[in-house]
Design a protein around this nucleic acid. Structure first.
Lengths: 332, 332
DNA sequence: GTCGTCGATGCATACGCATACAGTGACGGC
DNA sequence: GCCGTCACTGTATGCGTATGCATCGACGAC
């Protein structure tokens, strides 16, 4: 491995001068800088991130904590976040929250992460509090935990869901079934609250027996269709916690020969690229997921560079209703 | 941050003893180990990966080099690879190959990566050679480069594609269009060769004007349908380089109102989970992508732990034909 | 000519861990 | 009783970088 000592020897200066020169310190003369840069280039030197991290006490590695990487949703988060971090000179490290939240905190600090994006925290998670204890900067992505204040990027579902409610009411729906997200997540709670409020407003009822709660995954949507839509009194409208759930529901409907939207209308939330496919055409509530992922990256980097005393930043993304082909009038 | 010195102080021993005890060295008495473990637990100590990496000269970070994270295909690679690496005590760092391959090599070494999985290398890439120069262990994933020998996991497309050829021939096809992958990738070349061979065997012709080459992405399939299938003499069968391309093609067909498989049959390669959706039902060539991703993780870790002198390992995954709903007889 | 000043550079050190080597004590052989 | 041996633990050091501090030379002011 080529070290700054090698560069120093070739350039005829000391190692610290190499360090200062390459970091563009004003204490080094332009002539020396040039000499050092040439030597570094000639040797193909690039500074060791390890050595630097140990010396400065901070790395350029950002952890993205997700619940399960299998989930389609995260694919669309990882790519832009990785890109945005890369532009700012940071790396992305994936971390999954293990079943026990205990070791996770230790791993986050011992991995030498500079900061963390929490894309998984439930409202009752102890992770935020422990990160605070350890003075590890973090950003809530799409969810928040009531107990600990921190920078966050969140979605305000209201506008999109109100538009959704008006659209389905106008189509003639009066009853709906729903697959909501987990009760212990802020997105699950927030969307459920928004849907219930908006539907009441337009006179659509959601009976208790037509409601299901479950994780934000494909299987939940799949199961939901089997449990909710095969009943004789099943509503002609199914509201899903997000697009991944809705995709599970759409596919289950296709398997069961349930005509969408002829017999049942299905709506989602997120507007994943997949939902726009001609084969899918899912009517859903959209927001700028790409921009949101990038914003999270910028927030954590700003927090790292500005220090912990800056006021907490909270960025909210608005939603809009995207009608496609999975909503129609109820049968009859 | 809690260091091994803190633990040492609490346990009443020296820092090196802490290091040895926690690494379960036989040179430390059981009583001392116990004492150290208790102190470490009490303080919530976990060793700094940075310090360890600097000291030992090797980290536990594995880089996964991909072309573009946007590509659906990689979602199904990242999750199992991350999981498998995690089980073996390693972390996954995502690296995208920048437009210039120059800085990439330097970044890989300076990031302090212990090893690299190359999921993107074209046959003419200089990356493998430079990694060899730098003595950075690596594994080819799904592709190889002719110039440099290294461990690899690859797919043998033959069995699956021969079965595919027989199936479509039996359905009555005699002419096919094809969207092949880039010519400078081993998978692109390999599959093209296999398809041409197998189709010739069963008497299906692929005219030059019905062939397109392009990157393994959605847009390529989309574009392919517009360019190949809207001609009056378009064949009733379209072979796609992989499933992502085929999904692009399927959606383009749906947009254009092209009946699949009524007017055109479409086949892919990879059998991504999406392809099995009831909404998609893509007929394709399958192999164990999940297992392959895990195998790549195991290979790179074994290479790290066994040293560079062990013989090169090459693991091949077989393919099989998975008929679904996108292949039918040609019209008329 | 001497001294202060300032710009540029080298020296010493620290970060957290692992490891070669030295040292300590107990114990047994003679 | 002396010394070698062995099991264990402490001391010293290195990994690659960054940084506080000392140093050194040049230049200007008096």
């Amino acid at each position: 491995m080529i070290t700054s000592h090698d560069v120093a020897r070739l350039a005829g200066v000391s190692q610290p001068t190499v360090s200062r020169a390459l970091n563009d310190s004003p204490k080094v003369s332009e002539a020396t800088k040039q000499k050092v840069r040439e030597a570094a280039l000639a040797l193909g030197y690039s500074p060791s991130a390890i050595g630097r991290a140990l010396s400065t006490g901070r790395s350029t590695r950002i952890g993205l904590v997700v619940a399960d990487l299998d989930n389609h949703f995260y694919s669309y988060v990882i790519a832009p976040m990785h890109d945005e971090l890369g532009c700012m000179g940071y790396e992305l490290v994936l971390v999954t929250e293990s079943d026990k939240s205990g070791p996770t905190t230790e791993r986050l600090v011992s991995l030498g992460l500079a900061g963390v994006v929490l894309a998984t925290s439930t409202v009752d998670s102890i992770l935020p509090a422990r990160l605070l204890d350890r003075r590890m900067p973090f950003v809530y992505f799409n969810r928040t935990a009531a107990s600990v204040e921190a920078d966050s990027v969140v979605v305000d579902p209201l506008a999109g869901i109100e538009a959704l409610a008006h659209a389905v009411a106008e189509a003639g729906h009066t009853r709906a079934a729903a697959i909501f997200g987990p009760r212990n997540t802020s997105t699950g709670e927030g969307r459920e609250h928004a849907v219930r409020g908006a539907f009441e407003e337009v006179g659509i009822t959601i009976a208790g027996k037509h409601v299901l709660h479950g994780p934000f995954d494909f299987a939940t949507g799949h199961r939901g269709v089997h449990e909710l839509l095969r009943r004789p009194d099943a509503p002609a409208l199914l509201v899903c916690a997000n697009d991944v759930v809705a995709l599970g529901a759409l596919n289950a409907a296709a398997e069961l020969g349930i005509d969408v939207p002829g017999r049942t209308s299905i709506v989602g939330f997120d507007d994943l690229p997949t939902s726009g496919w001609a084969l899918v055409r899912l009517s859903t509530v959209a927001y700028d997921l790409d921009g949101m992922s990038r914003e999270a990256a910028r927030l954590i980097v700003r927090r790292l560079e500005d220090g912990p005393d800056e006021p907490v930043r909270r960025v909210t993304f608005d939603t809009r209703w995207v009608p496609r082909a999975t909503v129609g009038p109820p049968p009859g």
